[in-house]
Design a protein around this nucleic acid. Structure first.
Lengths: 240, 240
DNA sequence: TAGTGGTCTAGACCACCCT
DNA sequence: GGGTGGTCTAGACCACTAA
């Protein structure tokens, strides 16, 4: 693990544990450089990471500050943060559960081979899950994952978090993703599982996830009820 | 202008002009450092910028390469790139025009004061525009801009590009933005201007744009026809 | 194994904030 | 003017790719 990521990790932990009072500046870069026995440039790189993740912002000549909770403003929708490095950060609301609708192994089709850089003989998992919040289904997910890269998936894993399994049990490191977002009319499954009326649209997100080394490990399509999910993100540096 | 941004600007120009053959590596960082009379770290920072913008990707131990056209894949929808630093990059399609539905000056309401960091006495422009592609309206935009920051807007400017005006005529530099994306049912205006049937949803994007120094200069809501616009973006470094 | 990108350092200078 | 972040340099070492 490189140094600036380790520093970022430690700072992330401290912020989460509330070790730094909100609305006050973090220690200045020079001080932190001494504490972490590194150079100021490395501290800066770590802070840049946290800034992209939306945890902190810096004001030149003043200091680095912890962001007040960006998420949860007024709306009761679930808000999915985007520029959030590795953690897929659905807000911890009351009772989030997954129902597994279907879980099979098969060979990939042409598009899947394309997106996941596979041969047609490499088997993949095909997973359909329903996301449920307080008894109310809000998203349906179709996910395709190569068996070779993410082996030994079980129903139990599907009921909690595949991403946690990949990171924590397999020790793989996420690298990034590519996404396409659109609005769509409800199809049969949306009507059946998400209780969408004909006039109630879905927010569709198609995503390819990559490991740190660039290997794609998941090709997924998620359809969200329009009134329960929205996506927020920011690009740029500061206190936006 | 700082050095790494200048280098990035020059490289951007060269890439656009096709000075570097596609599918071949760019000159290596050390060579470029000599050419631009700077250090390798600075070159790296410039390349990082271009990477975030989706223009190039790098492979450690191999080189830096120009990306093939990410946009325009199969779909006939307009695809709006997101991680595209400063240029709002709608694809240059046949005939894109703007129709100005309404253009007035007024005082801001509470939410607008909040988002744009204004006093309620600072006047704002309120702009409604219709985006049209080949005679077909595809998006309706509601935009609020402080008069103080972006003075002298005219109908002529609205017919082309406000962003171009801000950048080129006023010489302001964009810094970033914050966005929220959701799917929504069509409202009266969507039905009227975008010809949305009751069952044809819209993709709604609420956005706050910032200048480089962190000043917000636009608060906007755009509603896109579901079958004509989608949003794509990538996070992470490489050749995704 | 040579070439290339990724990270890191120590020190420097500048721009900006705040008092 | 003192404190703080932003940028830059020159040189070093490591990790990865490609031959």
């Amino acid at each position: 693990m490189v140094k600036y990521k380790e520093v970022a990790k430690e700072l992330r932990k401290r912020i989460k544990n509330g070790l730094y009072p909100i609305d006050t500046a973090l220690p200045d870069q020079k001080t932190m450089a001494v504490e972490f026995e590194t150079s100021r440039v490395t501290i800066k790189k770590a802070l840049d990471l946290l800034s992209v993740e939306g945890l902190v912002y810096t004001i030149q000549g003043s200091g680095t500050y912890i962001k007040k909770n960006i998420h949860q403003l007024t709306d009761s929708r679930i808000r999915i943060g985007q520029n959030v490095g590795l953690t897929h950060q659905v807000e911890k609301k009351a009772s989030l559960t997954n129902e597994v609708l279907s879980f099979i192994v098969r060979f990939p089709n042409e598009e899947e081979c394309d997106q996941l850089l596979l041969h047609s003989e490499n088997p993949v998992y095909e997973i359909q899950r329903l996301r449920i919040l307080d008894q109310k289904p809000y998203s349906i997910e179709y996910s395709v994952i190569p068996v070779e890269i993410v082996p030994n998936i079980t129903k139990k894993i599907l009921k909690s978090s595949v991403y946690d399994y990949i990171r924590e049990k397999l020790g793989l490191v996420f690298g990034g993703n590519r996404q396409i977002i659109k609005a769509a009319q409800p199809d049969k499954n949306d009507q059946k599982y998400l209780n969408c009326h004909e006039t109630e649209p879905v927010l569709e997100v198609i995503k390819v996830m990559f490991l740190e080394n660039g290997t794609p490990f998941e090709f997924s399509k998620v359809r969200h009820r329009f009134d329960m999910v929205e996506i927020s993100f920011f690009s740029g540096r500061n206190e936006f």
